[in-house]
Amino acid sequence: MTDWFTEKQTEHVGVTMAIEETLHSEKTAFQQLDMVKTRQFGNMLLLDGMVMTTEKDEFVYHEMVTHVPLFTHPHPKHVLVVGGGDGGAIREVLKHPSVEKATLVEIDGKVIEYAKKYLPTIAGSLSDNRVEVKVDDGFAHIAHAKEAYDVIMVDSTEPVGPAVKLFERGFYEGIARALKPDGLFVAQTDNPWFQPELLAKVYTDIQEIFPITRVYTANIPTYPSGLWTFTIGSKQYDPTKVASTRFHTLETKYYTPALHMAAFALPKFVQDLLK
């Protein structure tokens, strides 16, 4: 017998995967957490019935949410990851030798606990001596930080449950205050097929706060529609104008300097959304 899990992506669309085994299931203080073993994608983390990450395709998201902003900033030393309790973004951040400290603020400590247990290839860098892990509210952490970070990454779930306020204009205003005078940030901003209004609103909010705002995409097969967007807000540095000399060799599976530039070439319908 094979069990099947379906993520209902809209009222009319779902993606179904074969499940070999449920490794852990728990209602935490914040959300329903399930860790399952799938036949196609290996171990998979689900939060409130939504796919967060899998062993097979996680590298796409984690490389693109980190390396694009970190190569855009010429000297990123202090980096904050809001959310991202699976540890994948932290793992990629630490590949940059200029980073002196990486702070992870995850509201649900259970995500960190079970990622370490069942996703060790993703969470293995959380014990690095350059990393500070805080189980705390990322919104509150941002509100109390002043010019503390060079780069901030918002590695959140979709805008449901505790992540709703991470998609609000007030949060982006707080990020601007938490960044240094030449700082920048990136947020995952869902997909343009099923969440076009969300992408357009977030882009508008960020554009009204930051002088440089750019959207880029990546292909992530286990995320709704497979076409995923990220939005950068920058005080000074343009991610589409990074000098070729700034790139250095990293061990990656998806990200390349050429792809860094190409990712900002948006389909026409996405360009139209952002007008």
Results as ranks from 00 to 15, higher is better:
W193F: 14
T121P: 11
T252V: 08
A243S: 14
G14E: 11
M1G: 15
I209T: 07
D136C: 11
E106K: 02
K56Y: 10
T10F: 06
K165I: 06
V79A: 00
H73F: 00
G161V: 09
H73R: 05
F5H: 01
V133H: 01
Y61H: 07
P69V: 08
L23E: 06
D155W: 03
E55M: 09
P97Y: 03
Q31P: 09
Y172D: 08
E158S: 15
T240A: 10
Q236R: 15
N219M: 12
E100G: 07
F247L: 14
F139I: 07
E106Y: 14
R130S: 06
K180G: 10
I107H: 06
V105W: 02
H78M: 15
G88R: 08
Y61L: 11
A18F: 11
P76Y: 12
E7H: 11
T28I: 13
R91Y: 00
E147Q: 13
A187V: 15
V131K: 00
T213V: 11
N43I: 02
Y203I: 09
D128R: 07
T121E: 13
M1K: 03
K27W: 14
H24F: 10
T229P: 09
N129H: 14
V99G: 00
L199N: 00
P97C: 08
P211C: 14
H96Y: 07
S127P: 01
A258H: 12
S127Y: 04
V135L: 05
T72H: 04
Y114M: 08
R130M: 09
E158Q: 15
L33C: 12
T54F: 05
H62Y: 01
S244F: 02
G85Q: 03
D136Y: 05
P74S: 11
F264M: 08
V105L: 09
G183D: 10
L198T: 13
Y203M: 05
H248A: 06
